[in-house]
């Protein structure tokens, strides 16, 4: 068994039990690397994603956080948790963006907004990725 499989099984088991992610998960490493260990506050950022995705290859998401300098998106159950970082420039009409992402399996998608005052805010959405009858 590869290290990655162990990690994914671990993350899956934890999600199933509804426990917080253990400190050693790849996803947590990625979040820590991004926030530099700062506290992450709940709220202040919106993450829209379908509750159920018909196919994990193309899952529409929208992130929004008023006053954010940037918003980073992680897919906790993917082989690499990083998805995208949106940096908003002076001519951004809003701190909001939509894209389409790949999810390897049912998992939590996390958006972390870095505000102009240096604080971090977080939103989490679980997306169930269905196994298609004939397509998936």
């Amino acid at each position: 068994m590869e290290r990655r499989e162990v990690l994914m099984l671990g993350a899956g088991a934890v999600v199933a039990l509804g426990l917080p992610l253990p400190a050693w998960s790849a996803a947590d490493d990625a979040v820590m690397a991004y926030t530099g260990g700062s506290d992450v506050l709940e709220g202040g950022v919106t993450l829209d994603a379908p509750e159920i995705a018909e196919n994990g290859n193309t899952v529409p998401i929208r992130v929004s956080a008023e006053g954010a300098e940037e918003i980073v998106v992680f897919a906790i159950g993917n082989p690499n948790p990083g998805v995208a970082t949106f940096r908003f420039g002076p001519l951004a009409g809003s701190q909001e963006a939509s894209t389409r992402i790949r999810l390897a399996e049912t998992q939590d998608v996390v958006a972390i907004a870095k505000m102009s005052d240096g604080t971090f805010h977080r939103a989490v959405r679980e997306v169930k990725v269905t196994i298609g009858g004939c397509g998936g």
Partner: peptide, 19 residues
């Protein structure tokens, strides 16, 4: 499985599939 079956018409072909 987790997939809604359609009536299987071909009026949308060729289709773009996410899969």
């Amino acid at each position: 499985r987790a997939d809604h079956l359609s009536q299987g018409h071909t009026n949308g072909f060729p289709v773009y599939r996410f899969s």
